[in-house]
Write a protein that binds this DNA or RNA. Structure first.
Length: 492
DNA sequence: ATGTGC
């Protein structure tokens, strides 16, 4: 696209928006016929240049769904997605509203966990080649990857029901792991009967695999502390080595989404719901169709939590073997684990009244503030850890749920840098090997299944994560605690 | 994101 065209597009975007303040832009209901509420974009002026008309229209489309509350919202990492944007937050009334798989995404409970160690940067950097190689061998990655690790059908059912609680009980972890996890590692009420045989068949051999695309396992170090009090509560210090795991529910979640989209396509007709785009297929929240999807989604979410738990367990084994010390001696404790593709039934204040709503977070992270009862006890005084992975080779951030998240965004923040360029285009225009060499010069060892993944995930095809994080920080939605710099990356 | 596209 020429610069001139780009500028034209940008001005076209803001023309139809109402600026509320430095970081909030509203899409008035006059933008399109049928909007029940306005849209709301959390974007700085700089990031406004990263979005296009189509993205604004997707946010507006979601505002047309029945029973949507307050605003159809978009976080600063927003970009085009299936029906709903990635970076979208939408809450629905349980009586008037709907549940939609498009508002969750295909990769149910794609998410991030952060494991601490008591190693220092200097303990790890000289060994990055061998550590990344060992991790790469231990943790299967890539599209369609399967491991030697096998679960039985009964174990799969247990995982669908109990997530990482099951994984820890089965021996893949320690007790504190589930304590330091969003929803304590599982969503209550998953119903394996709503998960089809195909999803089971795809999910079984993929347990304990990383996947591909933007999923990664990364060895990092803390290079900056912004908030010493919160950092102390989280157990983070400058120079400390951490391990971040970013992955989801693999083929299982994907198939659950695909299967239920079919049912919900029918439901749109059955319940005569006016949807501007069939990718927004949904059903009334209390209908059997919606609840069946929701119960299957919980199984997908639980699968993902168990998956990240198992991968962390193997990471510990690799570190234990390499350093000749056990998990306890190496301080390999889970800091936290967040879902960033999920719908949750939560209590929020709407128009001054408390009510139970279905919050859809698609490419958005829960960010509950200090004092919220769902923040684990040990973090309750500072707020929930909000983990924001960078794109490959760029910094990740630890934030804390901010004081304004409940009033501004149904307790939600951004989830990452956000793509600027589509996968296909990136694959065509980027050179994976060259990027790998450049990252090596920056002191980052990347071990990947194939070079094309590195091209797809090149840092330059993403927004700048600092810019994204600064918006939620300025708004008091989630506030910066620490910055993490990668030194070793495993990619599918 | 994905047993990777019409």
């Amino acid at each position: 696209m020429s610069n001139q065209n780009k500028e034209k597009n940008e001005s076209d975007v803001t023309e139809e928006l109402t600026r509320v303040n430095d970081n909030i832009w509203d899409i008035p209901t006059s933008h399109a016929y049928g909007m029940n509420v306005p849209g709301r974009l959390f974007l700085s002026e700089k990031l406004m240049g990263t979005i296009d008309k189509e993205t604004v229209n997707q946010v507006a489309n979601v505002a047309m769904l029945p029973g949507i509350l307050d605003y159809s919202m978009a976080m600063p990492d927003v970009h085009l997605g299936y029906g709903f944007t990635i970076g979208g937050v939408a809450a629905f009334d349980e009586e008037e509203g709907v549940i939609s798989p498009g508002g969750v995404g295909f990769d149910i409970n794609c998410g991030v966990r952060l494991m601490k160690t008591n190693l220092l940067k200097e303990d790890a950097t000289p060994h990055m080649k061998i550590l990344t190689e060992n991790l790469f061998k231990k943790i299967p990655s890539g599209v369609g990857s399967k491991g030697e690790f096998k679960v039985t059908d009964t174990e799969l059912t247990e995982a669908f029901l109990h997530g990482s609680q099951w994984a820890v009980e089965a021996g893949y972890g320690i007790e504190s792991d589930t304590k330091n996890c969003e929803s304590y590692g599982f969503m209550e009420g998953g119903n394996p009967d709503t998960v089809g045989t195909k999803a089971r068949k795809r999910g079984r051999p993929q347990f304990g695999t990383l996947g591909s695309g933007n999923h990664f396992l990364e060895i990092q170090y803390v290079d900056k502390i912004y908030d010493p009090v919160a950092a102390a509560a989280y157990g983070l210090e400058e120079g400390q080595v951490t391990v971040m795991i970013h992955c989801g529910s693999r083929g299982a979640g994907h198939q659950i989404c695909t299967d239920h989209l079919q049912t919900l396509n029918q439901a749109v007709k059955k319940y005569k719901i006016n949807v501007p785009d069939m990718q927004l297929a949904c059903a009334p929240a209390k209908s059997k169709e919606a609840q069946d999807y929701f119960d299957a989604m919980k199984c997908g979410a639980n699968y993902a939590w168990a998956n990240r738990q198992i991968i962390m367990h193997w990471t510990r084994e690799v570190f234990e073997q390499f350093y000749g010390k056990d998990t306890d001696a190496l301080g390999m404790e889970l800091l936290y684990d967040v879902a960033h593709n999920v719908a949750k039934y939560e209590t929020h204040e709407v128009d001054g009244k408390k009510q139970d709503v279905y919050v859809h977070r698609k490419g958005a992270t829960r960010a509950f503030p200090a004092g919220h009862p769902e923040v684990p006890q040990q973090y309750r005084d500072v707020g929930q850890p909000v983990l924001i992975p960078g794109s490959m080779g760029t910094p990740s951030f630890v934030l804390k749920g901010g004081p304004n998240s409940m009033s501004l965004s149904f307790g939600s923040a951004c989830h990452g840098a956000g793509r600027l360029m589509g996968r296909g285009k990136a694959k065509g225009s980027m050179n994976g090997e060259a990027i790998q060499e450049e990252l090596a010069r920056q002191g980052i060892t990347v071990r990947a299944e194939k070079a094309s993944v590195i091209a797809e995930e090149a840092p330059s095809v993403y927004k700048n994560s600092d810019d994204v994080v600064d918006v939620v920080d300025s708004l008091g939605i989630a506030q910066k605690v620490a910055r993490l710099i990668p030194i070793g990356v495993i990619k599918g």
